[in-house]
Amino acid sequence: MSSFPLQIDGYKSKTLDFKSTKDGAIKLDVFYPENVEGTKRTVVLHYHGGFLVVGNRYSFFPYWMVRGCVSRGWILVSPDYRLIPESTAQALLEDSIDAYNWVLSSLPSELGCTVDSVLMAGSSAGGYLALATAASVPKKPSALLLLYGMLDPTFDRYLTPGTTLFGGPPTDTSPILARFPISSADDDREKISSYPVQNLATDARFPLVGALHSDALVPDYMTGIPGLARSIRAEGVEAIPQVHRNLFPLSFGDLKDLPRALLVHGTIDPLVPVDLSTRAADVLGKAGVEVDVQLPTDADHGFDAKAGDVDIEGPDGEKVVAYGSLRHALKFLDSCAGSSA
């Protein structure tokens, strides 16, 4: 049984367990054409956003991307992954890698089709996971589409205390940090992999996102190392222990074999500064990656999800903020489809 947000004639959906943990199964959704059996298909694998702390495979949903898949006969896969702070980012990255490997190894037998190419996409925190996953796996995807991604945990925003998430005055973060402490080796909390947010203003967990920003604790909570952001600020990225350097692909990853990448980021994004994408594009380009960047001047964070259910290539698509960049993104994916690495 699937709760996939779209029902479209000619397409089906399945909710499946792609891995098991001691705290339960982790799920993904597959949205696929009815006549997929015996065919060769492109797969779009999309990682959701939520600052690594909240969200699930239905959160901040990219309807435009799903409808783009439908018009092309592609398959879309949307996985959950474990969340901070009950887990560290090592578990999140492991889940993201396992979802990609599931697409390669298990999706063909599940649907009776051949996977022609995998186009990897991610939004916000999902953009970070897409980049880190692609940098970690030996068989690369055919494309990377990174939407307003939290691409570099060593960015000043995550190392410098005092900047609040929405630009308001600083608040006392101690109650929320006490309620959601950093993960530790003997942490016995249930590791959650799905946390849908109905209302950011009233949600009990979302304030942790603000606390991690205002107190500059993002690298600490990602790794489970108290004080890591402070050490990076003082000593540079060499302060990051070897065992956790896979979580910092722009600083330590072997990037030269990554596929073509498109980065889309609105210049008025108040939550993830556009400099994260422009700097990432510079690093990727210097590593030899073919990089394209779209910087719409009227787009804020999550602009594409805020548009709701829209066919970005149809007449109504022109009403969407930065629709030209989203159409460009689909054309980019078109150019990469069917060219498996």
Rank of each mutant, 00 (worst) to 15 (best):
F31G: 06
S251V: 02
T133E: 06
G24I: 08
F155D: 13
S106H: 06
A287F: 02
Y323F: 08
A216G: 05
P161T: 08
G49Y: 04
E238C: 08
V283Y: 03
V53F: 06
Y128N: 09
I232R: 12
P241E: 11
P181D: 02
M150H: 03
I75G: 04
S20V: 06
A305N: 05
S214P: 08
G38D: 15
P141H: 05
F18L: 00
D172F: 13
R233T: 09
A135V: 06
T154Y: 01
D304Y: 08
D29L: 10
S117H: 11
L131T: 05
G49I: 00
K27L: 13
Y81G: 02
K140D: 02
D156H: 10
D186K: 12
G308C: 03
V274L: 07
A143H: 02
K12R: 11
R72N: 02
W102T: 00
D9Y: 12
V70W: 11
L330Y: 03
D152L: 12
P196T: 06
S214L: 14
S231W: 04
E34C: 14
I75P: 04
V66I: 15
G308I: 04
V272M: 03
T160S: 07
I225A: 10
C336A: 05
R157I: 06
G127V: 14
C69L: 12
G338T: 11
E110N: 14
V218Y: 05
E235A: 08
P153I: 11
P273I: 00
S3V: 11
T160Y: 14
W102E: 00
D304G: 07
D156A: 15
V209P: 03
V321P: 05
L200R: 15
C336M: 03
G127A: 12
G302F: 06
A121N: 14
V43G: 05
H46I: 09
R279E: 14
T267P: 02
T42I: 14
L145R: 12
D298S: 10
K306D: 13
V44H: 05
R230C: 08
I8Q: 15
R41N: 15
G324Q: 11
V291F: 01
T39K: 15
